[in-house]
């Protein structure tokens, strides 16, 4: 039975929720902020195979430039699979029958380049590793990257890690740019890990003409 009290209580909650939403989070403003920053796509949540496939496929539709589209797609694959496997924030997925990493991925573009950026929590112990690894990989020349990639691909699979340990090298090689890594301290256990890669439209256009 719905009493008069329940109704008035419900409408009070509704009113409060609206107020809170208006004050703390407006989806309209959020959309505007994404647009102001030229973000064309943003996804937050679990990076399951299904999501990755959808996000990835939508990047394949760049007109007249299949090589660039596939490189951008490849960057998204490596980035989202990093989150899938190594995010410190995981949720069990019934469909996949295992824990899957959560994070955020945004894709944007400027006149000259596409940008893909991702964020996820990582354990403190991994923070130093990713910082050092990205610094090292950014310091290598194209030829050195190629050799390092082949050397790492031959190295034995790391224990308890499903990835190939080639993601950063691949991103460097496919984008032709450094990988930007930022680690923000959160607490003693966790940090927030931001990974961004730019890929030039012109440079990749030239590649096709060559």
């Amino acid at each position: 039975m719905i009493s008069k009290n329940t109704i008035s209580l419900n409408s009070t909650i509704w009113y409060l929720m609206n107020e809170i939403q208006e004050e703390r989070f407006s989806i309209k403003q959020f959309k505007q902020r994404l647009e102001d920053n030229k973000i064309s796509m943003a996804f937050q949540g679990i990076l399951s195979q299904d999501i990755l496939t959808l996000v990835g496929q939508s990047l394949r539709n760049l007109p007249n430039n299949q090589v660039l589209a596939k490189r951008l797609f490849g960057l998204a694959v490596e980035m989202t699979q990093n989150i899938h496997h190594y995010s410190a924030q995981k949720i069990y997925s019934d469909k996949d029958g295992r824990d899957i990493g959560m994070g955020i991925v945004c894709i944007g573009q400027d006149e000259d380049f596409h940008l893909i950026t991702s964020g996820n929590y990582i354990y403190e112990k991994d923070a130093k590793v990713v910082k050092e690894r990205s610094r090292y990989i950014n310091s290598l020349s194209d030829e050195e990257l190629k050799q390092y990639y082949r050397e790492q691909r031959r190295a034995p699979q790391r224990k308890d890690k499903p990835g190939a340990n080639l993601g950063f090298i691949e991103m460097r090689r496919k984008s032709g740019n450094p990988v930007y890594v930022e680690v923000i301290d959160v607490n003693e256990e966790m940090s927030f890990f931001i990974l961004s890669v730019k890929i030039s439209k012109e440079h990749n256009q030239n590649n096709i003409n060559n």
Binding site: K70, F73, E78, Q81, R153, Q157, G163, A164, L166, I169
Partner: peptide, 12 residues
Amino acid sequence: SYFNTSSSRRFL
């Protein structure tokens, strides 16, 4: 036509 780095290891 495309493979990720993890598959690249398996192909090797």
